[in-house]
Structure formats: C-alpha cells, structure tokens
C-alpha cells in the first residue's frame, strides 16, 4: 500500500490518474448523452454504488437515495427509468474535477493481478428539465475504489456524496 504522490505510475506502466481520468470522462458522457444502458459497464460485476449526502456520510448512516451492490441492480435502475418511472424529460451536464489519488494496493483481477486505487473526484451537475429550466442540481464528490487492470479502470465502489441533503423535486438519472 502506498500513499500517493510517491508513485505516479504503476508497475504495469499505467498512470492511474490518466486511467481514472479517462474512465470518468467516459462515465459522465455516458450519462449526459443519455446512453444509460452503458452505465453499468463502468462497474465490476460485484460492486457498490450509493448516492448519499454529506450529512449521512459524516454520521455513518448507510442508506442511499440509490443503493446497489451488483451490476444487475444498476441495470435494473436503468430499466426502471426507461420503462416504469414517470418524470419529466431531463438531462444532466456533469462537470468533474481532477481525481485525487488517495491510495493504491495490489489486488486480484480477472486477468491475474491488478491495482485497486482509491480516489476522490469533485463534481457539479446541472439539470436541464425539458428544454427549459437549467438548474445547479447537485455538487459533491465521488469516493471511488477503482480496479485498474492494464489500461482499463472499472469501479468496484462509487459512493456519490452530495454536499446538500436536499434534492429538488426528484432524482431520476444517476449521478
């Protein structure tokens, strides 16, 4: 285990900041371009995804606005949004900051050895309802555990910590 700053590149030559930055750029494009069906592919099969608030996070309260521990549950979330739930047409524009790499460790991966990286990335999300109101919908940070295996980076865990406890109207699309 290494405190970062001391090891910008892994033993496989992958720069974790680059790998994570690339993965996150595609992650937000996937949501913002309404290709939600591809969103679960950013996660490992067994994973954790939770949207919570800074207050809950600080108090160690475990529930989420969205809560999943398998990729299947993420797929179900998308299916529900497509087929079941009613909400006004809307889209997001994610603006993400640089990932801060907090910790790296060797880990098992499907190809043998990989690296698990903990990172934190700040985000802002603008929500556009219909073609109309454009609101700053959420700010917060992604607390992530990435599995980096060669050039690919998959999320083992993403806890979306929203700074405010308040959600305007409803939260339909994932953050």
């Amino acid at each position: 285990m290494t405190e970062t700053g001391t090891r910008p590149a892994t033993r496989t030559g992958t720069d974790v900041t680059v790998a994570i930055g690339r993965a996150q750029a595609h992650y937000v494009r996937c949501i913002d371009d309404d290709r939600l069906e591809e969103w679960p592919d950013f996660f490992t099969e067994t994973c954790h995804y939770r949207i919570t608030t800074a207050d809950n996070h600080r108090r160690g309260l475990p529930a989420g606005l969205m809560w999943a521990d398998t990729r299947g549950m993420l797929t179900d979330r998308v299916s529900a949004l497509r087929e079941a739930n009613i909400y006004e047409r809307q889209s997001y524009r994610h603006i993400i900051g640089q990932p801060a790499i907090l910790r790296e460790s060797d880990t098992e991966s499907p190809t043998g050895g990989g690296i698990e990286v903990e990172s934190e990335t700040p985000f802002l999300v603008v929500r556009i309802t219909g073609d109309g109101p454009m609101d700053l919908f959420a700010s917060g940070r992604y607390l992530d555990r990435y599995l980096i295996d060669g050039p690919t980076a998959l999320l083992r865990s993403r806890v979306v910590v929203c700074d405010s406890s308040e959600t305007d109207t409803l939260l339909a699309l994932p953050l």
Binding site: A63, A68, A80, N85, I86, Y87, E88
Partner: peptide
C-alpha cells in the same frame, strides 16, 4: 434487505419518484 429496499422510496424511489413531480 432494508438498504436494498431504500431504492423503493425517497426522492429517487422506484415507487415514490413520481410523487415528487405529480404535485408540481
């Protein structure tokens, strides 16, 4: 089970999301 079912309710709930917008 309770944590998984927290998906059902609240602002993003599978069975409560609509209640957030229907009043509007």
């Amino acid at each position: 089970t309770r944590l998984k079912q927290s998906n059902l309710v609240g602002p993003a709930g599978y069975v409560s999301m609509e209640d957030g917008c229907i009043g509007g």
